[in-house]
Design a protein around this nucleic acid. Structure first.
Length: 435
RNA sequence: GUGUCCAUAGCUUAAUGGUAAAGCUCCGCCCUGUGGAGGCGGCUAUGAGGGUUCGAUUCCCUCUGGACACCCCA
């Protein structure tokens, strides 16, 4: 028996079922879609301007990819993955993020032989099984940029941040804030972790932090528990522990950002939840908000973790739902108006048939035509035309068909004029232009 | 995973331990050839399951979904 979440009622002989979208997931309705298209368009333009090409990977990946890539001890892998086992016995998961899949694709498809670095972008759904709340969904869409290969050059870190910043600028989000930090590399991070662990040892910390001290000590830095707050001030700063190379790298990133006047604030307490980051990490916040709308960083070791050759890389992912919410709330982002279409009204069966032919003529001329051929009443059709704010209505009745005419009605003024049917496309074109 | 609040028609809201009401939307008619108005009419609801009760939409439990917060995160 398959467990189903449909609600069922048995009344008499018939069964009534009702379905709802899965928890934390929602429909993008026709009224919302133009907005999404706009956001997608902006993302595409920004990404392609900076030399990124689109990639789309499968929604399902081997669970192991995320365990190795994102990290076994992370919340994402520990408790937020939608995992399933196929009939063949494979363990798959709905992707909770796209960096690991993109790296997998790079390795699998031999992109290492392309000119380096390879720049890829995506705008795709990811899935996380956590409890929904403000700005948090179980299915969310991420706009992401990844620069893969080449050198571990700070200029790439900066470029990713610049592109992300421009994306939000184009979405009319004012005064977004980039918080940035460096969490070092294999050489310097272990030293820092040791110092940090020493510092916190024998100090009064919260339960979560006791666990973090063992599994992921860096996370002690962004603990929000009151008990731990006073300790943060005295904690050793990672920026003082960076090795010479990491220091130079971080300095480089900041200098490039200064060069193009991207505003940022240093946040030495910023660490990221995923295992694969090294050196640069950053998060982007809307003005006055504390929910990140984008985050990213450098991940020079991820390729090795996934069985590839050592390959430096840096990337970021923005939450599209959150960006849209913030943009709408700030008022800069608006729902685009649909392109106006003329409306074809028919009266009678013969004209109904001929109307289909006429529609094709307009299609060839690139003019959008709406109709409601299913309705036969003239009033009802005009009503519909008015409701959808068609600038012009074409009225095609028996009389007109007989005389090879058609009436063009200006819906705002109510002025009508009969024109020869052969001229109607041209006439409409003319009127739309002058309007 | 935990906690708090919530669930009446497509939408917004009303009411009651005893026949569920309205506005907007939608559909139809007035309107055998002229729209946004008006009039008339119609469709559609107590999220699902169980319990208490003569009787539950109302009280109780479970499930599902929603809002918010924690954890964590885009």
């Amino acid at each position: 028996m398959i467990k189903t979440k449909a609600n069922k009622t048995r009344t008499g002989g018939s069964e009534k079922v009702s379905f709802q979208a899965p928890r934390g997931m929602k429909d993008i309705l026709p009224t919302e879609w133009p907005l999404w298209e706009k956001v997608f368009k902006i993302g595409k333009e920004v990404a392609e301007f900076y030399g990124f090409s689109r990639i789309e990977t499968p929604i399902l990946e081997n669970t192991d990819l995320f365990i190795r890539g994102v990290g076994e001890a992370t919340d994402i892998v520990e408790k937020e993955m939608y995992s399933l086992r196929t009939k063949g016995g494979d363990h798959f998961s709905l992707r909770p993020e796209l960096t690991a899949p993109v790296v997998r694709s790079y390795i699998q498809n031999g992109m290492g032989r392309l000119p380096q670095p390879v720049r890829l972008y995506y705008m795709s759904p990811v899935f996380r099984h956590e409890n929904p709340q403000a700005g948090r969904y179980r299915e969310l869409h991420q706009f992401g940029l990844e620069v893969l290969g080449g050198e571990s050059d700070p200029v790439y870190d900066a470029q990713v941040i610049i592109a992300a910043y421009r994306f939000f600028e184009e979405l009319k989000l004012k005064n977004v804030i980039v918080q940035i930090n460096s969490i070092g590399c294999r050489v310097c991070r272990p030293n820092y972790v040791r110092r940090l662990t020493d510092y916190y040892k024998n100090k009064k910390i919260c339960k979560d932090c006791e666990r973090r001290l063992k599994t992921n000590p860096l996370r002690l830095l962004d603990c929000k528990n009151e008990i731990c707050q006073p300790l943060k001030a005295g904690a050793p700063s990672i920026l003082n522990s960076l090795c010479v190379n990491c220091k130079a790298h971080f300095k480089g990133v900041l200098e490039y950002l200064d060069e193009v006047a991207i505003p940022y604030t240093l946040n030495p307490l910023l660490v990221r939840g995923l295992d694969y980051y090294s050196r640069t990490v950053f998060e982007v916040f809307p003005e006055g908000g504390d929910l990140a709308i984008a985050a990213g960083g450098r991940y020079d070791y991820l390729f090795e973790m996934l069985g590839g050759r050592p390959t430096p890389a840096v990337g970021m992912a923005a939450g599209i739902e959150r960006a849209i919410e913030v943009g709408l709330a700030a008022g800069g982002l608006t729902v685009p108006k649909p392109r106006p279409r003329i409306f074809l009204v028919h009266v009678g069966d013969i004209t109904k048939r001929k109307a289909l032919v006429l529609i094709e003529d307009f299609r060839k001329s690139g003019i959008g035509v709406a109709e409601s051929l299913g309705k036969d009443s003239l009033s009802a059709q005009l009503e519909r035309a008015a409701k959808m704010e068609a600038p012009l209505a074409l009225i095609f009745g028996q009389k007109e068909a007989f005389e090879d005419n058609i009436i063009i009605r200006d819906m705002t003024t109510g002025v009508q004029e009969a024109v020869p049917i052969t001229m109607v496309v041209e006439e409409v074109k003319k009127r739309l232009k002058s309007a």
